[in-house]
């Protein structure tokens, strides 16, 4: 089925998982849109995005990517189209360049060199200078590894990018500039992003839509500006009030 203009890029339809209690999750987003997923720890945020690139399967419901059930795609192909940055930034042995070339090895394609535009673009977007390419990935700092992790997730040029706490190891200025870049790629290339974050300030600044997830359910969701300005539920009001104080 060809994606028409009205077909959302991603549709989650009544997703329920047996093991980690996600219940009746329905949501959709368009190309070029940035969605933030917020909520208390253990609320199911990671579990939710892990369904979208099929690291796990729901026990009920379905997920459509550009109108197509994701189970119809071979998983490696799906995961090229839906990039994901895991919460823990695992670095393969070798240099940053080796790490960025990894997806090409899996596809048995020619490896892009350090000069390749796509490669330079990815590390640039992740706010890393090209000098990093020759560094040993495992000796980088937590924040640097996190940015390599993001660059690596971008290198397949996905349509949809899932980010699990992409800025948890970054300082405020780096977080802000990275957030800004994410927004720019969304707008200029039509990339859709779903970002799990504890950073409410970041969520508020860059996301178009926000999902508030608690105990495996969507308690509230909608346009970010509205959701932050007029939270409907008591839970969300409390949640929005507390962490901001901790951060200050």
């Amino acid at each position: 089925m060809a994606p028409s203009l009205s077909t959302p890029l991603l549709q989650l339809q009544q997703l329920t998982t047996a093991r980690n209690f996600l219940t009746d999750i329905t949501w959709s987003c368009q190309a070029g849109e940035l969605t933030a997923v917020i909520g208390p720890s253990g609320g199911g945020k990671s579990s939710l995005i892990r369904l979208i690139n099929r690291l796990e399967d729901p026990s009920d419901g379905q997920i459509l990517l550009a109108g197509q059930d994701i189970r119809e795609l071979p998983p490696p192909l799906l995961r090229q189209r839906v990039g994901m940055m895991l919460q823990k930034a695992f670095m393969f042995e070798g240099t940053v360049l080796d790490n960025l070339q990894q997806p090409f090895r899996y596809r048995k394609e020619a490896l892009p060199g350090a000069e390749h535009p796509n490669l330079l673009r990815s590390i640039g977007l992740a706010r890393l200078s090209p000098d990093y390419l020759q560094r040993d990935a495992r000796t980088l700092s937590g924040g640097e590894q996190q940015r390599v992790n993001l660059a690596r997730a971008l290198i397949n040029r996905p349509e949809l990018l899932l980010l699990d706490e992409p800025t948890s190891a970054l300082d405020r200025p780096t977080t802000d500039s990275l957030g800004q870049t994410l927004l720019e790629i969304c707008r200029s290339e039509g990339l859709a992003v779903i970002m799990v974050t504890h950073d409410l300030r970041l969520a508020r600044r860059i996301s178009d839509q926000t999902i508030y997830l608690e105990a495996g359910r969507i308690v509230e969701a909608g346009k970010t500006a509205e959701l932050f300005a007029r939270p409907q539920s008591e839970d969300l009001r409390t949640f929005l009030a507390e962490p901001e104080e901790q951060e200050a």
Binding site: L55, P75, P76, L86, K88, F90, F92, P103, Y106, N156
Partner: peptide, 15 residues
Amino acid sequence: DELETALCLGATARQ
């Protein structure tokens, strides 16, 4: 973690 990262980057189970 390595296995999951590899899968996310488009590896097959074998790879």
